[in-house]
C-alpha cells in the first residue's frame, strides 16, 4: 500500500519537475512546480515526517509559489503561444550533464537501499519515539531550539540580511 503511494508520488514529483522545464507558459511551469512540491510533501507523509510535509505545503506551495505567481502575472512574463525553450547544441549539452549527474546519483544511492520486510530502520524508530513523546511538531522543535539553536538563529540572521539587502537594492533603483 505504502509502496504504491510512494510510486505515485514519486512519479508526479518527477513529472512535475519535467513539466517545469517543458511547459510553454511560465504559469504552467509554476503550477507544475507546485505539483512537484506537493508530491514531495506526500513522500514526506509516507516517511512519517508529517510536520515537514505540512511546512513544505504551507511555506513553499502556499506562500513562496503564490508570490512567484504574483510576480509572473504582474510582469506578464513569457508567451503561452510560443516555445521559449530553444533546442540547440547548448540544450543537448545541458541534458547530457543533467543525465550524467542523475546517473552518478543513481549509482551512489542505488546500491542496497532496499530494506528487508519487517525491519524498521533505526532512524524511523527514533522518529517514532520522538513523535510519541513530543508530538509531531515537538519532535522537530525540541532539538531545533535546544541542541541546534545557534545554527537556527544564524540562519534567521542570514535571512534578515537577505531581506535588508533586497530592500536596499530595490530602494536605490527607485530614486
Amino acid at each position: 500500500m505504502v509502496e504504491i503511494f510512494f510510486y505515485i508520488f514519486a512519479a508526479t514529483a518527477l513529472g512535475g519537475g519535467l513539466g517545469v522545464v517543458l511547459s510553454k507558459s511560465p504559469v504552467g511551469s509554476l503550477l507544475m512546480m507546485v505539483v512537484s512540491l506537493a508530491s514531495l510533501a506526500g513522500v514526506f507523509v509516507l516517511l512519517e515526517a508529517h510536520f515537514l510535509a505540512a511546512i513544505q505545503v504551507i511555506v513553499y506551495a502556499g506562500a513562496i509559489m503564490v508570490l512567484f505567481l504574483f510576480v509572473i502575472m504582474l510582469l506578464n512574463l513569457g508567451h503561452d503561444y510560443q516555445q521559449d525553450l530553444k533546442w540547440g547544441a547548448f540544450s543537448v549539452l545541458s541534458f547530457a550533464v543533467a543525465g550524467g549527474l542523475a546517473g552518478i546519483l543513481a549509482r551512489e544511492v542505488g546500491g542496497d537501499w532496499q530494506i528487508a520486510d519487517g525491519v524498521v530502520p533505526p532512524g524511523g524508530r527514533a522518529i517514532d519515539a520522538a513523535v510519541r513523546e513530543h508530538g509531531a511538531v515537538g519532535a522537530i522543535a525540541e532539538p531545533l531550539f535546544t541542541t541546534y539553536v545557534v545554527p537556527f538563529e544564524i540562519t534567521g540572521i542570514l535571512l534578515l540580511v537577505a531581506i535588508v539587502g533586497a530592500l536596499a537594492l530595490a530602494k536605490r533603483n527607485v530614486s
Partner: peptide, 25 residues
C-alpha cells in the same frame, strides 16, 4: 485525526488561493 491537525488546515487553505488567482489570470 491527523497528527498535524491545524497545520493541515493552514496548508490546504493556503492552496485555495491558486484557484482565485488562476481563474482571474
Amino acid at each position: 485525526d491527523v497528527p498535524i491537525g491545524i497545520l493541515y488546515v493552514l496548508a490546504l487553505s493556503s492552496l485555495g488561493v491558486y484557484g482565485l488567482v488562476l481563474g482571474g489570470w
